[in-house]
């Protein structure tokens, strides 16, 4: 299985947001998208999902153009967690997660859908919340609900836009460990937008650095996260250290 993004361009009116972005992801790969605020990371994910229609270029899953896929098939191929979320008013956690299975049933959820939701809640350690109303949860718990909804969809491609935003460090590690394990075990493709460069270097097999809507660099964290590249992308020069083959990016005072 492979996901290819070819020469993707997108503009809001006369403002070019994405300019000829190309990369590919392979089966069992965690792929990170990094870049400063406004670099076009979220727009790139939305174009991949066809939430926004790219000006030119295409996205192919196993050689099949996603633009030509019916809505429902596309929803069965890729799941998405957005950067910002609205609370699901009045919905219990179980019901909110069950909505992730909507592309898989027509009139009513089947026993398989319900057990899949149960299983995902258990895997993420939030089965005790299943009867709670989503609006009564903390920000971190809500984020986990959204992640559970995405995981229970059983799509081969997962797209996450700053998924660990509202989570503390322990929960960030838990979620990313879980996602990393699932990606490797089930041969999925996970594309993550991350702001934390240390997490990106820990969990991503490869990363893409976006700069002003252009592709800055693509490669392993060791290849891409150099002081020069980060300076060119973020306009700061952090300290990049390698320890036990792992890369650490430390901020320095301006």
């Amino acid at each position: 299985m492979s996901l290819e993004v070819n020469q993707l361009c997108f503009s809001y009116g006369s403002t070019t947001v994405l300019n000829r972005i190309s990369f590919d992801c392979q089966r069992a790969e965690v792929f990170g998208i990094l870049g400063a605020n406004g670099a076009g990371k979220s727009t790139l994910l939305k174009c991949m999902l066809r939430i926004l229609t790219a000006t030119s270029g295409d996205v192919k899953l196993d050689g099949q153009d996603l633009a030509l896929m019916p809505h429902r098939d596309r929803a069965r191929a890729m799941s998405y967690i957005p950067q910002s979320l609205i609370a699901a008013p009045g919905l219990s956690v179980f019901q909110a997660v069950l909505l992730g299975r909507v592309p898989r049933f027509r009139w009513r959820p089947q026993a398989e859908d319900l057990s899949r939701v149960e299983e995902t809640l258990r895997e993420l350690g939030i089965e005790s919340l299943s009867e709670r109303i989503v609006t009564s949860l903390s920000g971190g718990e809500r984020q986990k609900v959204l992640i559970a909804r995405s995981l229970c969809r059983d799509t081969p491609v997962l797209l996450f836009d700053e998924m660990t935003n509202s989570l503390d460090l322990k929960h960030q590690i838990e979620i990313l460990d879980h996602l990393h394990r699932k990606t490797k075990e089930q041969g999925l493709i996970s594309v993550l937008i991350l702001h934390d460069l240390n997490l990106a270097s820990l969990y991503c097999d490869r990363v893409l650095l976006l700069k002003g809507g252009r592709c800055g660099a693509v490669g392993t964290p060791h290849e891409v996260l150099s002081e020069q590249q980060l300076d060119a992308t973020y306009g700061i020069r952090p300290l990049v250290l390698s320890h036990n083959e792992e890369l650490y990016v430390l901020p320095r005072k301006g």
Binding site: K46, L49, R50, I51, H71, R72, R74, A75, R76, M78, S79, Y80, P82, L85, I86, A88, P89, L91, A96, L99, G100, V102, P103, V134
Partner: peptide, 12 residues
């Protein structure tokens, strides 16, 4: 009812 349009699109 419980999602914005972008998420709704991603759910088919």
């Amino acid at each position: 009812y419980s999602n914005d349009d972008e998420v709704a699109v991603s759910l088919g």
